[in-house]
Write a protein that binds this DNA or RNA. Sequence first.
DNA 1: CTAGGACCTACCGTTGACGTCAGGGTCAAG
DNA 2: CTTGACCCTGACGTCAACGGTAGGTCCTAG
Lengths: 130, 130
Amino acid sequence: MRIGEVAARAGVSVRALRYYEEQGLLVADRSASGQRHYPPEAVDRVLFIQALYAAGLGSRAVLGILPCMEHGILTDEMHERLLAERDRVQAQLDELTATRDKLDAVIRAGQAHRPGQSAGTGSDGRAGAA
Amino acid sequence: MRIGEVAARAGVSVRALRYYEEQGLLVADRSASGQRHYPPEAVDRVLFIQALYAAGLGSRAVLGILPCMEHGILTDEMHERLLAERDRVQAQLDELTATRDKLDAVIRAGQAHRPGQSAGTGSDGRAGAA
DNA sequence: CTAGGACCTACCGTTGACGTCAGGGTCAAG
DNA sequence: CTTGACCCTGACGTCAACGGTAGGTCCTAG
C-alpha cells in the first residue's frame, strides 16, 4: 500500500505517518522513485502507536516498546520498559477513574438540586449507581 | 495563604497558579500591595484542575465545568457540559483499558518465550492472570 | 501525451501548559 | 535599616505532535 491508503485505513493524516517515520516508529520500503510502500500490518502498527500516544507516552517511550511487537522476543531491558509503561498506564487509569467518579458525584449533586427536571436533554442518564 | 504555600500544598509550581488565574480558573484576593491571597479551599480546587488536565481537558473545558463545583447548582448548559466531559473521560478510560490489556498481552507473550527467566529483574510480576 | 491526483522533500507555523529570565516591589527578622 | 526570602508583572523560550505551504516528481486514466 502507499501512504495515502495506510493513512485512510488507520484514520490518521499522511503527515502523521511521515512524522512517525521521522521518529523511527514506522519504516517503509521505497519504490525506485522514492515513494513509500507499506505492508498491510503497517495499519495495525499505526493504530497501536496511536493508542500509546493516547495513553500519554511520548515518541521516545513508544520507540522503546514498539520492537516488542512483531516478534515475541523480549530482552531484559524491553521487559523492564514494558512493565514500567504498563504501570504508568495503570496509574493513569486509576487517576482517570477517580476523576470520572468525581464528575459523577457533581452531576448527581446537581440533579438533586434540580427537582423540576426529568430527562430530556438528549444525553444519557448515567451517574446514578455507585 | 499566599501563592507559594498553595503551590507547595497542591504540588504545582507558582507559575502554574498564575497561569490558572490568567485562564480564569482560579481567583485570588489581593492584598493592598498586590500580593495574591487564597482561601484554604484553593488547594482542592487546584488539585481538581490538575485532575481535569490529566484527563485530557483543556483550559476552556475546565473553565466550563469548574463553576459546577463550589455551589451545587447546575444550569442546563452546565449539566450538558458535565455529561459530555464525563462521557469523554469514560471513552478515554475504555481506550486506556484496551491499551493496558494489549501491553499485558505482549508481556505475557514475551515471558512465554523466555523459559530461562524466573523473576530477578526487580519489577513485580503481574500480567499473569487475565 | 496530457491532465490531475497522489506523492516527494524541506521548512516554517501552531497550540497548550507551562519554564525561565529580567527588573523591580514587599515584609518579617535581626 | 538592611538582608534575604517571597512576591509582582511582562515577555520570550520550550517541547511534542503534528498542520500547512512551496516547489517539484510520479503515475494512472483517457
